[in-house]
Design a protein around this nucleic acid. Structure first.
Length: 694
RNA sequence: GCCGCUGUAGCUCAGUGGUAGAGCGCACCCUUGGUAAGGGUGAGGUCGAGGGUUCAAGUCCCUCCAGCGGCUCCA
């Protein structure tokens, strides 16, 4: 006699076990018609689930009460569509073996092992989608049935798919006593798949779908295991939602920093230079330089000292730091010492022996620096330090080199040479809290100034059960506390991640999501007990004995390359005036106003504003369109009327209409303020009646 | 690194074995135009590189390079 509690708190009682669908029907026929699944005690389930005991039940429909798409319903339709796609693929490519096909936040995928002589191609999508459409049209019911584990395994053994058998084993290991199948239609007659479910009731509920892309994956994510083909798709309850989704993807693509970087001429990659090596073009360099100058100023206010270091250092240095040869796979090959090369040549050492020696660290020479810390450590260590000198804060926009795998390179977010807004703080243990807090203060200031709010903070703590960590438990406790407290002050989403600390200390990472939904780690703050030990760093304490300092590595933005990539997407290429490569463009209405345009231009340049004149032989309409394409913050239309009155007609980016005319001197003053205040004040405010003349 | 896809003018792309195309951009000419594309003319390509098949290759095959989507990795 199940008592069913509904989301509104009401309770329905039934005399006998009842399906979720029947409960929906008892509430209303329209609900039952719309229903695609159920949530039983918070667990997503089939609509056909029989409820035998008291439970909380929510009927899942495509839209929630507020008319928003229901994420649970989307999971159901996508998982179901994965089955439909799998069936279609098996029809199109006989011999394809299904491996694993889950729903995702934005769609679904199915990992499939294809016969060696028949790989799936994008050209197959059309045929597959056609088959899928047939299956959807047939409106077959997803029918669940269950077999006792041993019986289920016998069935799978008969079918001979090692992947399915593996899935069954895993389910068993996870504690499942039985195995479930879903037939798309009638068991034993129609297509079926070993599957936990749940699904929508019928294929007909899949209103719209699309196969998106192909990718590869490894079985169990193990690169030594079978290579599988991952087919990505997405599904919705109706065509409109699918189209909106596709439009969103298009919009996101327009914000993609790789697209905008090319279009706005911010950076360039050149085959002749090398993969993953960024060339900063003049426009992009302006953005980077503005950011660096600004951060640099803030750092000096916070008591940092600028240092400069070479891009290479002796291998021995990195052996001391532990970076070499341990991380040699992700470093550029060492720059060999001439003597060493000669000796190797004389000894007739083969390439493989040489590479062996490199990986063993038995080489002499120089390394392109994979990190800045060893150089900074040597600066710290260049003179004796007293406890009174601490903290010592050494900062540098230091360029580092890492041999990322070629498949990993990605625009400016993953490159082989990048510049870290790096600093290393050398402090006493009792100073860690203040120093970590200081690091985060800068991050907060920067993110707030730039309007970056969509980021999260991850605090990596030690795994209490592991002994791999350097330093005592009390010291760790204090450092972890300091990191957590400081992170909490940021006001962003903070997650504690035990076991994610580096072996040498706890860390704070800042993670930003890009327009395509990928997450990128930007900055990091890491407490380090290890390197001071390795380099035998010390300072003289108040007690006149040697003490070990603690190091803090911190790079609030991580790499300038990745940070600016995120900024490009964040601003969709329309940078705030202070960062914009071209802040103002003067648009003379005709050649007759050329001279006045030059005058305006000169006044702007004299005030340090980055400005240009569009002297092209176009009508002003076209000049405005081009100005908008370059996402220039202000366009000044100047014609005879303006020249006469000594004014400029102002157009701001993103505004459909112009803001009206203002005296040239006022505009220059207003934009200079906007730039120096980083947008706290702006030209528009000065043009409003309240702001006029002040 | 691995799998798949892609590579044609500065940019975006069309071109499935038979004399290389479009739009934008660029140059020049006309136009001197007041708020999101005025008109005309022209220049610009070893079709990513190398090899092969063929009477004939941008097009088919192989190798390499680069980009993209993933997987693995990310001190």
């Amino acid at each position: 006699m199940p008592r069913i509690t509904l989301p509104d708190g009401s309770v329905k009682e039934f005399d006998a076990p009842v399906t979720a669908l029947a409960v929906a029907e008892s509430i209303g026929s329209r609900l039952a018609q719309a229903a695609v699944g159920a949530k039983v005690d918070g667990e997503l389930a089939d609509l056909s689930t029989t409820l035998t005991k008291d439970c909380a039940l929510a009927i899942v429909t495509p839209k929630t009460r507020d008319g928003e798409a229901d994420p649970d319903a989307l999971m159901l339709v996508r998982h179901s569509c994965a089955h439909v796609m799998a069936e279609a693929i098996e029809r199109v490519v006989p011999g394809a073996q299904l491996v694993y096909g889950p729903a995702l936040e934005t769609g679904f995928y199915y990992d499939i092992a294809f016969p060696e002589d028949r790989h799936l191609k994008e050209g197959d999508f059309e045929a597959i989608e056609k088959e899928m459409a047939k299956i959807v049209k047939e409106d077959r019911a997803f029918t669940r049935y269950e077999l006792e584990y041993g019986e289920g395994i016998r069935k799978l053994d008969g079918e001979g798919s090692k992947y399915k058998i593996d899935n069954a084993h895993r389910a068993h290991e996870a504690g499942s006593l039985s195995l479930t199948w879903y037939a798309t239609g009638e068991p034993g007659k129609d297509w079926e798949d070993l599957c936990r479910g749940p699904h929508v009731p019928n294929t007909g509920r899949i209103g719209a779908f699309k196969i998106m892309s192909l990718a590869s994956s490894y079985w169990h994510g193990d690169e030594n295991s079978d290579r599988l083909t991952r087919v990505y798709g997405t599904a919705f309850f109706n065509k409109k939602d699918l189209n909106e989704h596709l439009t969103r993807l298009e919009e996101a693509k327009k914000r993609d920093h790789r697209v905008l970087g090319k279009q706005l001429q911010l950076f360039h990659f050149d085959e002749a230079v090398g993969q993953g090596l960024v060339l900063w073009t003049p426009r992009g360099s302006i953005i980077r330089k503005e950011l660096q100058d600004w951060i640099g100023t803030e750092l000096r206010k916070m008591g940092y000292s600028d240092v400069f270091c070479p891009h290479i250092g002796k291998l021995e240095l990195y052996k001391t730091s532990g970076h070499f040869p341990y991380y040699s796979d992700s470093q550029f090959t060492p720059v060999m010492d001439r003597e060493f090369i000669h000796r190797v040549a004389d000894e007739g050492c083969s390439c493989s022996e040489l590479s062996n020696q490199i990986s063993m660290g038995q080489v002499e020479g120089y390394l392109l620096k994979p990190m800045n810390c060893p150089h900074h450590i040597k600066i710290f260590d260049s003179q004796p330090r007293s406890y009174r000198d601490l903290p010592v804060r050494l900062s540098e926009f230091g360029t580092v080199y890492r041999w990322e795998q070629s498949g990993e390179l990605n625009g400016m977010t993953r490159v082989r040479s990048f510049t870290v807004d790096d600093a290393h703080l050398f402090c006493r243990e009792d100073q860690i809290g203040d120093e970590v807090r200081g690091c985060l203060r800068l991050v907060k200031l920067a993110f707030e100034t730039l309007g970056l709010t969509d980021f999260r903070v991850r605090v990596g703590l030690r795994d209490p059960d592991s002994a791999k960590y350097v330093g005592t438990a009390e010291v760790w406790d204090k450092a972890e506390r300091a990191c957590l407290d400081a992170a909490a002050e940021l006001g962003a989403k903070v997650s504690e991640e035990p076991g994610e600390a580096a072996f040498y200390g706890p860390k704070i990472d800042f993670i930003v999501r890009d327009v395509i939904g990928r997450e990128w780690q930007l900055g990091t703050v890491q407490v380090d007990y290890n390197l001071p030990e390795r380099f035998d760093l010390w300072y003289t304490g108040a007690d006149n004995t040697k003490h070990r300092p603690v190091m803090i590595h911190r790079a609030p933005f991580g790499s300038m390359e990745r940070f600016i990539a995120v900024l490009i997407e964040h601003f969709a290429g329309a940078f705030p005036t202070w960062l914009s490569p071209e802040q103002v463009r003067v648009l003379p209405i005709s050649e007759k106003s050329s001279a006045y345009a030059d005058e305006v231009h000169a006044a702007l340049m004299a005030a340090g504003v980055r400005a240009s004149v569009d002297h092209s032989n176009e009508r002003v309409q076209a000049k405005i369109k081009h100005g908008a394409e370059w996402k220039i913050p202000y366009l000044l239309v100047v014609g005879p009327r303006d020249a006469e009155g000594g004014v400029v007609s102002v157009r701001a980016f993103g505004e459909e209409k112009d803001l009206g005319a203002m005296p040239l001197g006022d505009f220059v003053a207003a934009i200079a303020d906007e730039i120096s205040s980083k947008g706290e004040t702006n030209v528009r405010a000065r043009m409003s009646p309240a702001g006029a003349g002040t």
